[in-house]
Amino acid sequence: MGILVSFLAVVALFLSVLVGIDSLGLRWLFGVAVPYAAAALFLGGFLVRVLGWARSPVPFAIPTTCGQQKSLPWIKSASIENPSTTLGVIARMALEVFAFRSLFRNTKTELRDGRLSYASNKWLWAAGLAFHYSFLVILLRHLRFFMEPIPGFVLALTTVDGFLQLGLPVVLTTSLIFVGAVTFLLVRRVASPQLRYISLPTDYFPLFLLLAIGASGLWLRHVTKIDVPAAKAMVMGLLQLSPKPAESLGTLFYAHLFFVSTLLVYFPFSKLMHMAGVFLSPTRNLAANTREVRHVNPWNHPVALHTYDEYEEEFRERMRDAGLPLEKES
């Protein structure tokens, strides 16, 4: 159900471009207004969300410790998995963000003949990493449309990416990895009954959208063989605030642009914000030195207490009879 709705939503996006460009010629709408609005919503939305999180304090230091604490000098502590210093925290976060450290631990639990087994299961980690890094490379490659002259590293990256030397223009491996990884993540979500059970339409939608972005991009490069200078001129026009939607670029280009715009708009209002949220996660971004350094809670309000005096008041007789020392004799 959720999957169908999400798929149809992406199809609807495509159809709206078809109608909008082919029948109505709304090039200004899809080529200028939508991208500008999307960029603004993305930046504004992103900022609002992050500031929203940041506005709430972190009352307690609650790192999840995944290794030996720093205690006695002769016991080796896990300086990254259970960091007691800021440097350790930075290393822990870096591993989390760049290498998906926690996901790397993933195991598959199986109960068979009354025995539990925990097999290493790195598929999700591998596909997740493949998707995120290929997406990053693709974004960097697209800088060729945004910068003049094209920076050397972008050209170098593209050359390396095309090492397979297949076809003309050459097939870029990251594009294939991207589509492959996203497809895997989608298939995985559908194939496992448990995962399907927890999945929301909002889990399928971004996957279909990413597939649409990838497919339209590949099609533009390899099938329609897009007029690159015209596309670049249009993108530069948008950047320099003198937008001029190109007549020569086909509907598919506008579709690609519309998919990307949709992703930008969708981003701040969805789970995709995990990109920023991971940095703010108190179980990962705090040092576990909570007995060494006091963490301050800004709203540490007073609470009702049962004091020793009240306690002794109630039990004084019995304490005296038992020979326990007292503060007040009567």
């Binding site: 940041a54 709430s56 304090p57 972190v58 995962l195 889990d203 995990h274 703010l280 996660s281």
Partner: peptide, 16 residues
Amino acid sequence: KYRSFKVFMDICVRCG
């Protein structure tokens, strides 16, 4: 009062 609560309400991707 709790950033943890706010962030944990928002960022789960249901990766399973």
